[in-house]
């Protein structure tokens, strides 16, 4: 509770900060109670650790000539690549003598960069369009809803496969394309539905009466109220982006130097996937990493769902 007598003396930002901290505490409690959310968060933190540890290891223990994820090569083991896990290479080496663990850790960074960038673009576009559609309705609404139908119709991976013949897709371009495309997709429908429930609230009417412009109302009243849902969908979009990148890399369709998908692609194109159990270290670590990261972001999304959507909570 805010002691009422303090309002006059205390600066507004302090009160805001305290309110914010309080709602954060409450929401964190709900998130924690979902149990699956924290599990996802723990996995993500684990990957963050891997990401941070890589440059440190490269600077201290690992010799860059041997352990560089792209151009490294272990001369001491010539002829024995791909080598199974050993003390020198905890996850073994790939067919051309590079350290798997180093590749795995190094790629974490680009996966995060890709996933978060793409999801951020998606959410910014989706939130804005959702809010605009809900506020204005009419032709604008119809247009964007049909567009969303259309985007949902395209199997993403199929579309990107063609796009790749038109432009070379490096990491950032891929993030941009995926972000923009899914921003106009299903997310606008969901966010618009949410924005519609906000639009009928009395304070929107009050803001209109007070002479607020459409842009002002969208920015200050509608968008903040659909933000939690946007944030939630951002998590699902990270999953989607990481997954799509991995599949495309696996087929060798991307212009990326190293990623988890490419690691499996390397193993496959060198013919090591046929003998399945024999060269497990070539596919299992990157495969597991892709799965775990997608899994983790999805779980965090579901955990946030119980925070954002009161109907899913326990009574």
């Amino acid at each position: 509770m805010i002691p009422r007598r303090n309002v006059g003396i205390e600066p507004l930002w302090k009160i805001r900060a305290r309110l914010w901290a309080r709602s954060l505490r409450k929401n964190w409690g709900l998130f924690w109670e979902s149990r699956i959310g924290p599990l996802g968060l723990a996995i993500i933190l684990f990957f963050v650790l891997l990401m941070v540890a890589h440059p440190i290891l490269m600077a201290t223990v690992w010799d860059p000539r041997v352990y560089d994820p792209v151009v490294g090569f272990d001369r001491a083991m010539v002829g024995r690549h791909p080598a199974p896990p050993s003390w020198a290479h905890p996850l073994g080496t790939d067919p051309i003598g590079r350290d798997i663990l180093s590749q795995l850790m190094w790629s974490t960074r680009s996966e995060f960069a890709l996933g978060v960038t793409s999801a951020l673009i998606t959410v910014v576009i989706g939130t804005f369009i959702g809010a605009v559609c809900a506020y204005f309705g009419g032709v604008v609404d119809t247009f964007f809803m049909r567009l969303a139908d259309l985007v949902m119709l395209f199997p993403f991976i199929a579309l990107l496969m063609v796009l790749r013949s038109i432009v070379t897709l490096d990491l950032w371009r891929l993030a941009l394309v995926m972000g923009v495309l899914s921003g106009f997709g299903g997310i606008t429908i969901i966010l618009k539905a949410q924005a519609l429930t906000v639009k009928v609230k009395p304070y929107i009417e009050a803001a209109k009466v007070a002479g607020g412009s459409a842009f002002h109302i969208i920015r200050r009243h509608i968008v903040p109220n659909i933000m939690p849902l946007s944030f939630l969908y951002m998590m699902f979009n990270v999953t989607g982006a990481v997954f799509t990148e991995a599949v495309l890399s696996y087929f060798g369709l991307l212009d990326i130097r190293m990623s988890w998908g490419i690691m499996i692609h390397t193993a496959e194109s060198a013919g090591y996937l046929g003998a399945f159990g024999q060269y497990w270290w070539l596919w299992a670590p990157p495969g597991a990493a892709i799965t775990l990261l997608c899994f983790a972001f999805y779980l965090v999304g579901r955990g946030l769902d119980t925070v954002v959507n009161p109907r899913l909570r326990k009574r």
């Binding site: 499996i264 597991a288 799965t291 899994f295």
Partner: peptide, 18 residues
């Protein structure tokens, strides 16, 4: 069941196939 379902839903498809 939820965790299992999410795991299969987000599993890297080639990995599952392998």
């Amino acid at each position: 069941v939820t965790v299992t379902g999410v795991l299969f839903y987000t599993i890297f498809t080639p990995l599952l196939a392998l």
